[in-house]
Every structure is written in C-alpha cells, then in structure tokens.
Nucleic acid binder design. Sequence first.
DNA 1: AATGAATGAGCATTCATTCAT
DNA 2: AATGAATGAATGCTCATTCAT
Lengths: 200, 200, 200, 200
Amino acid sequence: MARRAWSGVGQGRQELFERKRQVVLRTAARIFSERGFYQTTLADVADELHVSKPALYHYFKSKDEILLEIQRAAIAQMTDAAPDSGNGRERLTAFVRRYVAMITDEFGTCLIMTGVLPLEPKNRQSVRAGSKNVEKIVRDILRQGVQDGSIAPCDPKIAAMLFFGALNWIPYWYRASGELGTEQLAERAVDFVMTGLRPR
Amino acid sequence: MARRAWSGVGQGRQELFERKRQVVLRTAARIFSERGFYQTTLADVADELHVSKPALYHYFKSKDEILLEIQRAAIAQMTDAAPDSGNGRERLTAFVRRYVAMITDEFGTCLIMTGVLPLEPKNRQSVRAGSKNVEKIVRDILRQGVQDGSIAPCDPKIAAMLFFGALNWIPYWYRASGELGTEQLAERAVDFVMTGLRPR
Amino acid sequence: MARRAWSGVGQGRQELFERKRQVVLRTAARIFSERGFYQTTLADVADELHVSKPALYHYFKSKDEILLEIQRAAIAQMTDAAPDSGNGRERLTAFVRRYVAMITDEFGTCLIMTGVLPLEPKNRQSVRAGSKNVEKIVRDILRQGVQDGSIAPCDPKIAAMLFFGALNWIPYWYRASGELGTEQLAERAVDFVMTGLRPR
Amino acid sequence: MARRAWSGVGQGRQELFERKRQVVLRTAARIFSERGFYQTTLADVADELHVSKPALYHYFKSKDEILLEIQRAAIAQMTDAAPDSGNGRERLTAFVRRYVAMITDEFGTCLIMTGVLPLEPKNRQSVRAGSKNVEKIVRDILRQGVQDGSIAPCDPKIAAMLFFGALNWIPYWYRASGELGTEQLAERAVDFVMTGLRPR
DNA sequence: AATGAATGAGCATTCATTCAT
DNA sequence: AATGAATGAATGCTCATTCAT
C-alpha cells in the first residue's frame, strides 16, 4: 500500500523531475485551497502524495516557494488569456470564457483563495505585478470597447474591478463536480457581465 | 506615554466593558484584513491597543472567538441590509447600496478577506449559515424581480453568486481613503450589476 | 519535584529578570563547554534549569544570542584584566594572574572551547574584535617591557600569541575541582611564561 | 568542466582507492577547520571535490569516521615526533620543531580546532588516548631533562600542558601563507618555551 | 482588571544516511 | 563506481493560551 502517488508519471530524466514537480504543485494547490495555506502543513502535502516530507525539498526549497510557483503558474495562464482580435465586446467575451476555465483549475483557485499575503514581501510584489498586468489587459479592452462603441461608456478602472470580482469569486462557490459545466458557467458569466440583471 | 487606546471610551459599568470589546473587535478586524489572520499574532493586536496580551482574554476567550464575533457582526449587518418594499429591481438596488457600505467597513472587509477557514469547524458552519442566509435573501429578490418583470430571466442561484462576487471583491481593491466615495462606488456597482457592460 | 532552578534567586522586579538571565547564561556556558555548542540543544539547557524550552525565549531571542552574551561577558572580564601600574614584567605577571582566574570560569571556558565559529558572521566579528583588543593589550605590555628592560627582546606579535596559547589551553585540561587551586595554577603559569623550561 | 578533483591522482588499483581517500581526508580537514565540523555538511565536502554526496560513502562509512581518521592521522604524526637521542632539552627542542610542522598541516590543525567532542564516545576515547600518549611522551622528556639538569625543576604535568598550550594554540592564529615560515615559527616557539619572556 | 512569566503543541527546515539504478 | 532520489530523526523557534501575582 501507499504506492508513490507519482509512480509511472513519465520516464524522461530531466523531464520526470519536472513532471513530479507539477504533481506536487497541483496537489499542494488543491489542499491549500481546501484548508487554507497556514492550516496545511507540508506533512499534509507529503502524506497526500505518499511521500516523505523532506522529499518535497528536492523539488522546492520552501513552502513559500511552492505557493509562489502555483501563483506564478496561475498568473501565466491568465496573462495568456488575452485575445487579440475583434472589437472590445468580442475580445472581452473571449477573455471571460478563457478566464473562467483558468480560475476554476487548481492554480487559479489557489491564487484567489489563498491570496498573496502568505508570500514573502518580495514574492508578493512579484505576483501582484502579474495581477496588475492582467487587470490592465482588461482595462485596455474596455477602453477599446468604449471607443468602438461595443461597450457602454464607463470608468474602465472601476468597471474592470467589478468585472473581475464577479469572476474571481467563482472559486468560492462553484464546484466543477456539480451539474453546471465550466463552459455553461462561462456563458452565464458572459451574460452577467455583459447585460447585467435588468431586462432589456 | 503609550496611553491605553481606549482611555475615555465611555464610563458606564457594563457598558464600558462592551465598548472596549468593540474597540478590540474593530482593531483586530483591521489588522486581520491587512496582514492576514495567521500572520497576525495576538501580540500584534495587543500592541496596537497598547494593552498586554492577556488583557485580551478578559474580553474574548480565544483568538478564534475574536474572529467569530467580527464575522458575526458582519453577517448581522448584511442580513439587515435587506429592504422590504418595492419591486425586485428596486429592492436589489437598495440592497446593493447598503451592502457596499457594509462590505467596506472593518467587519465586512474582514469577513471577506479572512474568510471562514481559520474558524473552528463549528463556528465556521455558523458563519457559513449566516452567509447562506444573505445569499438566500438575494435569490428571493431575484426571483421576485424575474416574476414582476423588473429583472431579466435568469438562474437565481448563479446570478446571485456572480452578483455577490462583483460586490465581495470590493475589499480587495477599493480604498475608502481614495477619491471615490463609498456612495459613488455603490452607484457604479448598481450600474454594473443592473445593466452590465454592453451599451443599451 | 522539578523545582525551578532559580527559585529564590532574588526579588527585585527588573533585577530578578537580570539575575535569571545570568543563571541561564552560566548554565548554558557550562553545558556548551562540556558537550559542545551544536551537541547542546535548547531542550538540554531548559531541562538543566527545570524550565520549559520557550521560557528561554523570554530571556534571549535565539540560541545564537545566548552564546554571544556568554562570549561578550568573557571578553569584558578579560579586557578589565589589564593592570596599569608597574614595569612590563610586573604588569604582565598581574595580567596572567587575573586572566587565569577568568579563563577558568564558565564564561572564559566557553569562549575558548566553543570558539566563535558558531556565531553569526556579524556577532563573530564583534567577539573577534574584543579578542583582538585583549591581544593588543598584551602586545603593548610586552613592548613596554622590552623597552624598560624587564622583558626579553622579542617580536611582540608572536610572543603574545604563544603566551596566550599557554593560557588559553588551560580550559582543555585544568579542572578547578582537582587539587591544584586556581591561584597555584596561576603561579605555575607565571613561571612558565616568564622563565620557560630551561634552568637559569 | 567541473573535472573530478582527483582525476589523475594515481593509477594503481588498491592504491588509487587509498589516494582518493587521502584527498577526501585532507579536503575535509581543511573545511572542518575553516567552518567548523557542524557547519560543514557532507554536501560541502562533496562539492569541493566535485563529487556527489553518496560517493563519499564509498570511502568512509560516516561523517564521524572521516573526522576520526583525520584525527588519527594527526595523532600518528605527533606520536612519531618524539626524538630519542640527546638530553632532555635537546629532545624537547627537537620535539617542538617537529610538532610545529605537524600542527600546522591540515590534520593537526583539524585535530586542534575541531576537537574530539563531535566524535562518538568510543572514537573520542580512542583519540583522547592518543593525545594522552603524546602528552606522556613530553612529560617523560621533561622528567629526563629535570634529572639530567638540562630542564628547570618543575611539575611535569602542569609544565607539559602549558607547553602544549603554547603550541596547540598556533592553528588559531598562524597562517602558513604569511611572511613567517613554519621553521621560523618553530624557532620562536623553541625560544618561548625554553627561556620564557624574562631577560636572562 | 491587568500583567509578566511560563508552557504545550506544533511546524518548517536541515542533514547524515540509504536505496534503486 | 557512482548518482539522483528519498527518508528518519532532530532541532530551533513561534504562538495561543494559562498561571501567579
């Protein structure tokens, strides 16, 4: 019993190392989101992986680094979510669809639910800079949309944050295991942020 | 030097005790939100109040209880935010205005930013029940609005959560000290959740 | 059972604190010298004092700080050992007598036997500077003696270090509990460093 | 790049093994003396040798054994330092010259600076016995010298330890890389232990 | 009511050592 | 012979909480 959780993960040399690293990251992200970063000990993570605690230190040099890499991965995904063609509304709609997919995976969920406060100040700044960048992308889309008339006139800063709120809150209530699929959720989100609740 | 932070808070007997309790609560809520619950030690809270650590135990029996009471207070405020007259849209609009006011104060902010994970399971359930109740209030308003035609047809569950997301995320980015007042913020929020981003 | 090792140490407020601190220091110095710094855990020190481990942290903020204060105390004693009247030989003789007394107490012994390597670089420099100072005192005495003719012509640097060697090695072999008293030891040391082993 | 530090050390079969062992020993001795035994990890030693950590276990079965062999080598050298012809003074002088040479090499320096405390009790006794033996050699020389009149009357036990102190302290301050050569140092040491500091 | 002192429980991290290849 | 991977054992330190005054 207690087979290595990553037995048979792959067989490249360097590559195997990298895959195990990813497994650690996903697992840790999931547990951090469920229990909270501080309520999760490295022993918890190790146990879940059927691995000893020091083994984790082969892959990461500290608990903080694990969280940092999770959040970096989340930010990277989100940054790539920016679509580049179409008018403002079209781009925003595409962004929502991709963003919902990412924020419901382990990394995105952990970024939102754990937040950056546990990180060391330096790393915190790093992740925050990434988030700011994603926000800027959306602000720019909004500005474009306002100009091309596909989006209602608004203060892009405020609107972007209310927009992000609707999406970022998803990890707090949505369970992928339920009946609502991620794509359908994305459609509801598109509807909500585009047309609001008032009937047309 | 180092005068008690609550010197002159009041002078009733029982009442004085209660007021000091509130001061502890507000202060703790603020620090918890800023640094995070686990990064905040009771020594930090005591220092901020110019009081000794054990003194806090005169007012609360544990760190957990402090957080619990903060969150209960937040929930109580929010529950009271429910307006009872008007059609769905009117009631929802009124709710948003009150909710924004509450979520930007120390208690509301702490409820959102600290979350319920740090609480003991029993207390966590208690707060969660309160939150569910607030959500139910909104769902009911939505249902009413859909029926009376003042709100667009939608799945009330999903819509309510997207709606709450837009509002709950506010503490993560809004600073009351900035140029945007709370009331103006509330108006933007009303616009956003009611009409969305697409031009009419 | 397990009475506090420092029960009844004193009763001033501030003063009591300081005395307990000294007790910790002496005890730690003794154990460090016996077992070595790294072989001694804070639990060992705490046990010896019939106190809990965290209690030590009321008095010192780290294991390193304990060692630092021990060594600072030793250096302070030694610095004060410098006599100021007489010719070179007389001053050196007086220095030996005082130095032997100090190097055989807990602090002096710990300074020699533990060394400064365990200290953090910054603190290490600090103690080293103190040691250098003591060495300088002796070099100056030697120079004076060479000039006034009471000490044989020699290179003061080398001579001082050989001189210190003879004395500093004492903790490695001398036990105060044996038949040879500290004063007698000091006389032998005076003889040795003054006249050497060859008959006159 | 990063060629094995011992590439080309030799080519005999068994002999090669033995030479590599010696390289490990010298290197470890040097690092132990510089940083301290406990501050030196086997990874440090392996890195310095451009070898993997487990590789060291081909040559030694534990870190303790490495230190033990270093110290045994030092003791062996010292034991051989005893000269056998001449009167007491002559023999002692010769001993000093040889002893200084040994105590300034890697093994001798490590024996002095690391001490025997890190060793397992059994090994510690073994090395201590060797040291005692070297001390006995000197005591015997002193006794002979006192009898033949070439050394001043003294308590051989105390005199021997003060004598050793002057010499053993050398590693703490002497750097072979400086301007003072080992032979010159030995002459100063001979002068000091023979005639002391007082002018004749 | 209030505090300095003390503690139990816990946790991240390190490192010598072993194992599988 | 040699190494990357893995681990058991240990330790310094933190902090919520309690106790004695």
